[in-house]
Simulated scan of single mutants.
Amino acid sequence: MSYVSPPEFVRKMIDAGESKVFMSARDTVIRAYMAGAILALSAVFAVTITVQTGQALLGALLFPVGFCVLYLMGFDLLTGVFTLTPLALIDRRRGVRLRGVLRNWGLVFVGNFAGALTVAVIMAVIFTYAFTVDPNAIGQKIGHIGELRTIGYADHGAAGMLTLFLRGVLCNWMVSTGVVAALMSTSVSGKVIAMWMPILLFFAMGFEHSVVNMFLFPSGLMLGGHFTFGDYLMWNEIPTVVGNLVGGITFVGLPLYATHARTAPRRAAAPGVPAPAGPEPEPVPEARV
């Protein structure tokens, strides 16, 4: 069978987090760069479909193709490493330290941003014939997204900031669920189907993804969006990154680790009551220190 049980895929999550902490800077940046670029192209694709058809749901339905491609190619998004690498630290894997986790996050952020910015520049050139004409309908839509998701939040002050943060939390709850879902199967088709569902949900509901935004907002600035780079950082990217971190580790990484890697002992049956049928839970190996 291609299905992987929860205790098995949680061990894979911890192993993946450990391997990412010790990955070379070169490989980490290359994989992050390609992930940012592919996800940016997927965002362009989704916006294009939405503009051409007038159906936002159809754009959301097709957006996950980029996520599936980058995952199957072994590339890394900031949202994914936010969930996986802390587990290696919590599990006390040999040599894993907080500075190693932070190093991984920093390198992945730089790589994702560089990849997304590369696509932003290329697409801005395409949408404007090398900045010789006004942006086409797709470019105008991207510029409008940038305004709505910066100035739109700023107009509401603290309430807007809280809304932005919570959209970041919910985003990585779904995105990291997609990352984990891919570990639940050993077949390509099973991985794709499992990933597709939560990624569709996050995009369709307009949650805030830090890496997608690394494309949308620089691109929007180049395409005439009425907001500043400071607006982008203060009223989107920074709160979104924090929300993505909280969402991934709080609602995906820690619950799975707590119940499947550190399963509590079974309750004893009351006197005179037969024990429930079925095999005992698989013992969990001790953490490596």
Rank of each mutant, 00 (worst) to 15 (best):
F165M: 09
E208P: 10
G157Y: 05
V211H: 00
W173P: 09
G157A: 05
T177K: 03
S176T: 15
A194E: 12
N172P: 14
A158E: 05
I122G: 10
P218R: 00
G220Y: 10
V133W: 04
W196E: 11
A158K: 03
W196A: 11
I126M: 07
M195G: 05
P198E: 07
V212I: 13
M205E: 11
T150W: 08
F215K: 00
E208V: 09
A159E: 14
L162P: 05
G220W: 14
A194K: 13
F131G: 03
G230D: 09
E147H: 12
F207K: 11
H226Q: 13
L164C: 10
S210R: 09
P218C: 00
S185E: 09
V188W: 07
K141S: 10
G168W: 00
E147G: 05
V180L: 10
F227G: 00
G152N: 13
H144E: 14
H209N: 13
G190I: 08
A204C: 13
G220I: 12
I142Y: 02
M195A: 09
L221E: 07
F207Y: 15
G230E: 09
L221S: 06
M123S: 02
A194W: 13
V125C: 14
L221P: 02
V179N: 05
G178L: 03
F165V: 05
V175W: 04
A154G: 11
P135Y: 06
T177R: 05
M123Q: 03
A137L: 13
I193L: 15
V180R: 04
Y129A: 11
P218K: 00
M184I: 02
L216Y: 08
G152S: 13
I122Q: 02
A124F: 03
A204T: 10
M222G: 00
S176Q: 06
M184D: 02
W173H: 06
G206E: 11
G178N: 09
G168V: 04
G190W: 08
H226D: 12
L166D: 01
N213A: 03
A182P: 01
H156W: 10
F227T: 01
M174N: 08
G168H: 05
A130R: 15
Y129I: 08
F215G: 01
G160V: 02
P218A: 00
Y153G: 07
M123K: 01
L162M: 11
V211R: 00
L216H: 01
I142T: 01
Q140V: 10
H144M: 13
G220F: 11
G190T: 11
E147C: 09
L183H: 06
A154E: 14
M222E: 03
M214E: 02
Q140T: 14
A204Y: 08
S219M: 08
L183S: 02
G225D: 03
P218N: 01
I138G: 02
A159R: 12
T128Y: 06
L166C: 06
P218G: 00
V169C: 07
C171P: 12
V169F: 06
I151F: 01
W173N: 03
G139H: 06
L216M: 14
G224R: 10
H226R: 12
L223S: 02
